[in-house]
């Protein structure tokens, strides 16, 4: 074996970084494992307006970086590696990564979620050729063009509003006739002349030779099919938890989220979950931060109880 810690945190988003900060301040030997950039999903957010303490809003990338700095300041160690599996059967837990194995007494799983794919024909084939999941990354490629956004939640409307900086027209395609997004975002979108809505409509397929050209759509109420010429389509239809490697190890909800109690405890002693990845999470930065604190406090209690 491998390096051993008192606590390993999987995931470096707001939940994981908060847990890491608490653990480091409690002087637990702690390793946080992150596959990409610390900050998690929020690094793709142009502006975060609903996290307290930043009355003018703050860019997601900057907020993520500040959370990382704050956790590192107290000595949190961060490793860049992709987790491939965990072994939680014994008192000593093992985290297997592409860069090696790590052992720990307690584990906080805060691996978050990632964008869901729609699963329609053309989506994978035209990925990077007009199909995108990151408006802040790819918006600039669609200057003065007509594009579509699929979805009706906060991410979809934030994307649509951001994309009006570049696109001549943004058409939001939503399967229902009302939006799930926060009211203030709805007001902004309805008042933005470049944004149009197609209600009760689902995407059936994405077509184009080497580049996105056409969307095939269907009205879910009338079943009438239609097509829409666009050069890009941004898909924002929700998040799925990064729990692919946890099947059979922990109890998961039918959607794949980790089942926890209000103490962020999973069914396995010493294993906690926090943030978007846990069942029932409202998937907000502020809730993830709260989860991270709860999980770290309880992980510390667990570690001292078995010493």
């Amino acid at each position: 074996m491998d390096d051993s810690y008192q606590l390993i945190i999987i995931g470096g988003g707001p939940a994981g970084l908060t847990a890491g900060m608490y653990a480091a301040r409690s002087r637990l030997s702690t390793l946080l494992v992150e596959r990409g950039l610390p900050g998690g999903q929020i690094v793709n957010a142009e502006l975060v307006e609903n996290y307290p303490g930043f009355p003018e809003g703050i860019s997601g990338a900057e907020l993520g970086s500040l959370m990382e700095q704050q956790a590192r300041r107290y000595g949190l160690e961060i490793a860049m590696a992709e987790v491939e599996g965990v072994d939680v059967t014994g008192e000593q837990k093992t985290v297997r990564t592409g860069e090696g194995h790590y052992g720990a007494t307690a584990l906080i799983i805060a691996g978050g979620s990632e964008y869901s794919k729609l699963g329609v024909p053309g989506e994978d084939e035209l990925r990077g050729r007009g199909v995108s999941y990151c408006a802040t990354c790819d918006g600039a490629f669609f200057r003065d063009q007509t594009i579509a956004v699929i979805g009706g939640g906060n991410v979809a409307l934030n994307d649509a509003i951001f994309l009006t900086r570049f696109a001549s027209k943004v058409i939001v395609v939503h399967r229902r006739n009302e939006l799930r997004a926060t009211k203030i975002l709805q007001e902004r979108a309805f008042n933005q002349p470049k944004i149009e809505f197609l209600w009760d409509t689902v995407l059936k397929s994405i077509e184009g030779e080497g580049q996105v050209k056409l969307l095939r759509l269907q009205n879910v109420k009338t079943s009438v099919e239609s097509s829409l010429e666009v050069s890009g389509v941004f898909i924002a239809v929700g998040l799925k938890p990064n729990t692919g490697y946890l099947g059979g190890v922990l109890a998961l909800s039918p959607e794949g989220f980790i089942v926890v109690n209000e103490q962020m405890e999973t069914g396995v002693p010493g294993v906690f979950a926090a943030g978007d990845i846990r069942c029932g999470s409202p998937q907000q930065i502020s809730s993830a931060v709260g989860d991270g604190a709860v999980a770290a406090i309880n992980a510390e209690k667990y570690i001292s109880s078995i010493l």
Binding site: G36, L37, G39, V43, A61, C134, T136, C137
Partner: peptide, 10 residues
């Protein structure tokens, strides 16, 4: 591009 966070991650 400098504005792209996943670019900084990779």
């Amino acid at each position: 591009a400098p504005w792209c966070s996943p670019c900084r991650a990779i």
